[in-house]
Design a protein around this nucleic acid. Sequence first.
DNA 1: GTCTATAGTCGGATAGAC
DNA 2: GTCTATCCGACTATAGAC
Lengths: 251, 251
Amino acid sequence: MGKPATGAAARAKPGVGKSVVGTPIVGKSTVGKPAAAARQGRPKTANRLKRIEAKHAAILDAALALFSRYGLHGTTVEEIARTAGVSKTNLFYYFASKEDVYVGVLSRLLDLWLEPLREFQLDSDPIEGIREFIRRKMLFSRAHPEASRLFCLEMVQGAPLLRGELETSLKALVDSKVPVIEAWVAAGKLAPVDPHHLIFALWATTQHYADFASQIDALLKTGLDDDRFVEEATRNVQRIVLDGLRVRNEG
Amino acid sequence: MGKPATGAAARAKPGVGKSVVGTPIVGKSTVGKPAAAARQGRPKTANRLKRIEAKHAAILDAALALFSRYGLHGTTVEEIARTAGVSKTNLFYYFASKEDVYVGVLSRLLDLWLEPLREFQLDSDPIEGIREFIRRKMLFSRAHPEASRLFCLEMVQGAPLLRGELETSLKALVDSKVPVIEAWVAAGKLAPVDPHHLIFALWATTQHYADFASQIDALLKTGLDDDRFVEEATRNVQRIVLDGLRVRNEG
DNA sequence: GTCTATAGTCGGATAGAC
DNA sequence: GTCTATCCGACTATAGAC
C-alpha cells in the first residue's frame, strides 16, 4: 500500500508520515547507500560494489541536474531514472524514496561547496589570498553551476535539510576564519571591515554568476560557458572588492 | 473533465496541454484579472470592483508567501486559498489556474523589483549615487524579502516566465545606465570598471541578505528583521564596494 | 459568488515474476 | 537485480446546487 504523502502535505505537516525532508543530514555515511543493498544479501565482490557505486553516482548526477533546474517538487522520479538511464523501479531499488535521492544529492553538494572556503588560507598576504579566493570561487561556479544553483535553491527556501550542517560544519569553518581576518584588520593589512560581511560579499559576488546565469544571459547573451567572460568577470570582481569604485590618487 | 497536466509533465512537454508556464509575460494588464469576472456578467459598481480587487490582492499576497518558500510545485492551491482566507473553489473563480496565480504574482513582482534600478539616477556624484543605491536596495530587501526570494527562485530555475521581460524591460533599463557609468569612468570620477559587472556586484551583494537569509541566520542568529544588522550590513557593503579592502594611504 | 462533491489524472511507491 | 503491472493518495479543476 503506497504511502505517498508527497508534495505540500508532506512538508505542511512535519512529523506526520515518513517524510525525510526536515530531517537534518546527520550521518552522511548512511545517506546515499542503496536502500535494499544496504542490508546486504550476499558477500559483494569489488566488482559488484563498483558497478553499484557507478549506478548510484549516475542517479545522483541526473538528480542534481534536474533538481537544480526544477526543484524537488518540480522533478519526477521517472525523469531522474530516464536521465540516469535506469528504470524507475530500479531507482527505487537503490534509493528508498525520492527524498532519499534528494538528501543524497545535497549531501555530496555541501562538501563540494565548502571546499573553496576550506582552502581560504590567506597565508601571508591577505590581498593576494582574497584575490585567489575569488578566482577559485569563480572557477567553481563555472565547473559546478548546477551545484551552485541547487545550493542557492535550498538556501532561498529556508534550507530545512541543511540547517543542521550550516550551524555546525559551515559555522565552524566561518568562525575559524573570522579571527584571522580581524587580526589582519588590526595589523593594518586590510581596510576596517566586518569579517562576516566580507565573507558574504565574496560569496555573493562570485555565486551570482552561476545563480543568476539566466539573467546575465538575457542581458549579455553570454555566461560562464565563455572563458573570456569568466576572466573578465573575475577581474572585475577582484577590482571592485579589492580596490573599490572610488578613484585612487596614489599609485 | 479535468486536464491537470500539472507538475513535471507540463513543463517537460511544452506545448502539450494548456500550461501557461513557459509563456512570457506580454500583456501584463490581462494577467491577474479574475477568470470569470474578466468576461463580465453585469455592470460592476465601484464597490464591487474594490471588493474583488481586495480578494484578488489577498490571494496574490498569500501566493507570494508560499511560492517564495516552497516554489510553484511545492505549493498547493488549497494552501494558497486557506492562507488567503478563501475557499479553494472560490480561488478558481478568480483565477483560471494555479499557474495563472503564479504569473500574477511574478508580474507584480517584476515591477517592484525594477523600482530601485529605475531610480538609479547617480546624478552628479557617482559615489554618492552608488552609496544611495545600495542603501535603497538593502531597504528593499528588508521590506520585501519574499519578493526578492521568489525572484531569485525564478532566476535560478532559468526564468522561463520572465525571460521575455528580462530581455526587454530589464535590458532597456540596464542599457540606459551603462553609458552613464562609462562616462563617469572616462571622466575619472569612477575607477575603471565594466558597467555590467558593477551592476551585478551591486545586485549580488545587496540581495544576498534576503536570498541567503537562512544561511545568515544559521551563522549569526540574526538577519534583516534586526534594524541594527541592516545598518551594519549596509555600511559594510558600501565600504567594500566603494573603498575596497586594500588599505589606503591617502586620507 | 460561494459552497459541496467529485471527476480526472499524475506520480510515488510496492508486489511479485523472473 | 531488474522488469511489468498496478495500487493509491494527493492535487488540480469542474459540475451543479443554492
